[in-house]
Simulated scan of single mutants.
Amino acid sequence: MNLTISGHHLEVTSSLREYVLTKMDRVTRHFDQVVDINVLLTVEKQKEKDRRQRAEVTLHTKGKEIFVEASNEDLYAAIDQLMDKLDRQVMRHKDKLQDHHHHTLKREVMADEAA
């Protein structure tokens, strides 16, 4: 798994990098078929009172690319929101990959008795 953390108008400090890594562990714990992860942390300076922090993730898996973004006044809060959204999308993708259309033994026995 390749993990790239970059900043736009922002220097990615070691504390930010560690925070993203600890939050990313939750996602990789649920789904281990991740090929590549790109994290982009951005500071948008439109006005000083409207200063927004934005975090984006592009997660590449086999056959699917998941993109999530979140923004907040605090960068750490934006990362928390981002990881919550990403975790939900990864779990939804994992559920779609699993085959839920299996027949139980109980239904097969009941079908044989009815016939």
Rank of each mutant, 00 (worst) to 15 (best):
D95W: 04
A77Y: 08
A78Q: 12
A77F: 02
A114G: 03
K64S: 13
H103L: 10
V90F: 01
K62D: 11
L97I: 07
L86F: 07
R88H: 14
L86G: 03
Q81F: 02
L59H: 08
L59G: 09
H60C: 10
A111C: 01
D112T: 11
R52N: 11
L59I: 09
K85A: 15
H102Y: 04
D74I: 00
Q98R: 15
T104V: 00
K85H: 09
K85E: 02
E65F: 01
A115Q: 08
R54Y: 03
D84M: 07
M91R: 14
A111V: 02
V68P: 01
T58H: 03
K64A: 15
G63V: 06
A114V: 07
D74R: 11
A78D: 10
R107L: 02
L59V: 10
L105A: 14
D112G: 04
H100C: 01
L97C: 06
L59S: 12
K64P: 07
R88S: 10
L105P: 06
E108D: 11
D95L: 04
E108M: 08
H93L: 13
R52A: 11
A70M: 03
M110Y: 03
F67H: 11
K64N: 14
D112I: 06
R88D: 12
Q89S: 09
K62N: 09
T104P: 00
T104A: 07
K64T: 14
H103Y: 04
A70G: 08
D74W: 00
A77R: 12
K64D: 11
T61R: 04
V57L: 01
T61C: 15
T58N: 07
H101K: 09
D80G: 08
D74T: 00
N72R: 07
H100L: 05
D87C: 03
V57S: 06
D84C: 01
D87N: 14
K96W: 08
T58M: 05
G63L: 10
V57D: 01
K64Y: 10
A114F: 05
F67G: 00
L86V: 04
A78F: 01
V57Y: 00
K64R: 15
E65R: 14
E69K: 10
H101W: 08
D99V: 06
H102N: 11
L75I: 15
H60Q: 14
A114H: 10
M83W: 07
A114L: 10
Q89F: 00
V57Q: 00
Q53N: 15
R107N: 13
Q81K: 08
L59K: 08
L59P: 10
M110A: 14
L75D: 08
I79V: 15
L82P: 10
Q53V: 00
T104K: 06
E56L: 06
Q53G: 03
I79C: 14
H102W: 02
A55P: 07
V109C: 02
R92K: 13
E56M: 03
K106T: 15
H93Q: 14
K94F: 11
R88E: 05
E65I: 15
R107W: 04
K85V: 11
A111Y: 02
N72H: 15
Y76T: 07
L105E: 15
A70Q: 12
A115Y: 02
L97W: 01
D80F: 06
F67R: 13
M110Q: 14
H60F: 11
E108F: 00
A114W: 05
Q53C: 13
A55V: 05
R52H: 09
S71V: 06
Q81A: 13
M110C: 00
A111F: 02
D80T: 07
E108P: 01
K96Y: 14
H101P: 04
H93K: 02
A77G: 09
